[in-house]
């Protein structure tokens, strides 16, 4: 590979990276907004029946952002990884469901 070619590839690569970084910053801004909404909803003393599902959904979306953008699970080559993470999430969900329903208090 000639030097010029490498430079060309590099500049293309850098362009791509910059774009990606822009997405990351947008992701971050959204996460901060979600966090703010959750805290304000609780701080404002909203009704319990609405606020709990709301903050849980906000948390789930935020975590989705972390996994897919910050941790790059959206990228290629993450198929095995995501199936295992979803496996873990499934077992996590079943565990939490159990402990909030059938621990016999």
């Amino acid at each position: 590979m000639t030097g010029a070619n490498i430079n060309k590839i590099n500049s293309f690569k850098k362009q791509k990276q910059k774009e990606e970084m822009k997405h990351q910053v947008i992701t971050f801004a959204l996460m901060i907004i979600f966090t703010l909404v959750a805290f304000i909803a609780v701080g404002a003393g909203m009704n319990k029946t609405y606020v709990i599902p709301l903050i849980l959904i906000l948390a789930l979306v935020q975590v989705g952002f972390q996994f897919y953008y910050f941790m790059h699970m959206k990228d290629k080559g993450h198929e095995v990884i995501s199936s295992l993470i979803y496996g873990g999430i499934w077992i996590a969900a079943v565990t939490v469901l159990t402990f909030t329903t059938i621990i016999w208090w």
Partner: peptide, 12 residues
């Protein structure tokens, strides 16, 4: 405390 928690964790 709740001892059923142990049983669940152990069998999970």
């Amino acid at each position: 405390g709740n001892s059923v928690i142990w049983q669940h964790l152990f069998w999970i």
